Simulated scan of single mutants.
Amino acid sequence: MRAVFRGLAALGLLVLALAGWVLWFAARPPQEGSLAVRFARDMRFHHTQAVELSMHLLERPVSAPVRLLAQDIAVSQEAQIGQMGGWLDSWGLPFAGPAAPMQGMNLLAMGMATPQQVRSLDSLSAPQAETEYLQLMIQHHRGGVQMAQDGLKSGVGQVRTLARAIVNSQSAEIKLMSEMLRQRGAAVPVGLPGVGSGGMDIMPMK
Rank of each mutant, 00 (worst) to 15 (best):
V66H: 04
F95L: 10
R67K: 14
F39V: 07
A70W: 00
T114G: 00
H56R: 14
V145G: 05
R67T: 03
L121Q: 07
Q139E: 13
T48I: 01
Q117H: 04
V66G: 03
G97T: 11
S54M: 02
M147D: 06
F95D: 10
I73E: 02
L88M: 05
M102V: 12
G85R: 09
P61D: 15
G85N: 11
G104E: 07
M112S: 01
L58A: 06
A99T: 15
V62E: 00
P29L: 13
R38Q: 14
H140K: 03
A79H: 06
R28F: 09
G111E: 00
W24C: 00
Q49S: 07
L58D: 04
S90G: 12
R142G: 14
A74N: 02
Q71V: 00
A96H: 13
L53S: 05
V62T: 11
A126V: 04
D122Y: 09
A129W: 02
M84Q: 11
P115E: 01
E52K: 07
E52S: 12
S34K: 05
G85S: 13
G86K: 10
G143N: 06
L108D: 00
G97K: 03
R41Q: 15
S63E: 14
A109N: 12
E130A: 08
A100D: 11
M147T: 08
W87A: 10
I138R: 03
E59R: 15
E78R: 14
H56Q: 11
D72F: 07
S123E: 15
R44C: 10
